[in-house]
């Protein structure tokens, strides 16, 4: 005799005949994703780990298995500390100034004005993200060109009476990589924050107005608290994505002058593909994964994501 609970379980699971069908469904629905994940995520990591324990270099020949590459990472590579310091400035600066703060300002500003104008401005800010990175950086190169023809120099010289053209790529390279990345990065925060702001019930703003709040008080007491989750998410997500992305920097400054704008990910690239130290590049890349995981966990802890992800006990309308 089956109990009611058993019957319910059977009811929910379906009957015995469908076991085979469930297996087929598993293969059909999850198979492609699993293949792709293994092929493009698991296998590369395994290869990376393997390569990092070899002396693979330009000759593409492995003569020995060694932990030499890790000794380099932790002991002998003196440039690495400078690279990590720069990466911190780059990631933190881009996040703090653009991806979160500026994204937030854009979202608040474009939702406060008329819908049509708001959408227009958000569209404008999305343009660089939609254009190919090479094209985007080409425009930047024109803008900061150290000659009199450069856009910024034209403005400075003709409108502000500057005497000689500036070479921003040499004099302010770190600021440039932060700004060029930030202009693109801000759009993601903008979109996520805009959606979150839109979902705040209007009656809360009415209540705040009745209670005596002005525009800034409404932003501080209603909008920002409601954005806690999106802000945490954007911060963690963008930290990780900034840690590993380097294409704009490579295109704009090539990591130079010298190593001045070589962030960690770009350093990996330069070591592996410019100097041909594939083994060392692999070890560096693996260390970057470790850094990424640590940063993500710290962020998770710092923002108390666990609590934020809990489901509310009572539906709030």
């Amino acid at each position: 005799m089956t109990t009611i609970a058993d019957e319910l379980t059977i009811e929910r699971r379906g009957h015995a005949g469908s076991v085979a069908r469930r297996r087929t469904n598993f293969v059909i629905f999850l198979g492609p994703a699993i293949i792709l994940t293994v092929l493009f995520f698991v296998v590369p990591v395994v290869i990376d780990v393997a390569v990092s324990f070899t002396d693979l270099s330009r000759s593409l020949r492995i003569s020995e298995f060694t932990t030499e590459q890790y000794e380099k990472v932790f002991r002998t590579d003196r440039r690495l500390s400078q690279v990590i310091g720069l990466t911190f400035i780059y990631v933190f600066g881009t996040l703090a100034i653009f991806n979160v703060t500026f994204g937030l300002i854009l979202a608040v500003a474009t939702t406060a004005i008329r819908n049509a104008s708001g959408s227009f401005f958000r569209g404008v800010w999305l343009l660089p993200r939609m254009s190919p990175s090479v094209l985007y950086i080409l425009l930047w190169l024109w803008a900061v060109s150290p000659t009199e023809a450069g856009l910024i120099n034209q403005v400075l010289m003709q409108a502000f009476g500057l005497d000689a053209p500036l070479d921003l790529l040499t004099s302010a390279p770190i600021a440039l990589i932060i700004i060029s990345n930030g202009f693109i990065g801000a759009s993601m925060g903008m979109i996520i924050f805009t959606a979150a702001i839109r979902s705040i019930p209007e009656h809360l703003y009415h209540a705040a107005a009745v209670d005596g709040a002005g525009t800034f008080a409404k932003i501080r007491f209603i909008t920002l608290p409601a954005l806690r989750w999106p802000i945490s998410f954007v911060t963690i997500y963008q930290t990780l994505s900034l840690l590993v992305s380097f294409e704009y920097i490579l295109l704009l400054t090539k990591g130079g002058p010298f190593y001045d704008t070589t962030v960690y990910a770009l350093y990996v690239y330069r070591r592996a593909f410019e100097s041909g130290q594939y083994g060392y590049g692999a070890a560096l890349a693996l260390f970057l994964i470790v850094i990424g995981v640590v940063v993500a966990l710290l962020g998770w802890r710092f923002f108390d994501m666990e609590r934020l992800l809990q489901r509310p006990r009572i539906e709030v309308h």
């Binding site: 009415h206 209670d211 005596g212 709040a213």
Partner: peptide
């Protein structure tokens, strides 16, 4: 609104969550 000194109870209560 903020200078009117009115108290409002909204249909949804509109408490700050």
């Amino acid at each position: 609104t903020r200078d009117r000194n009115v108290g409002v109870v909204f249909q949804s209560y509109a408490l700050y969550p």
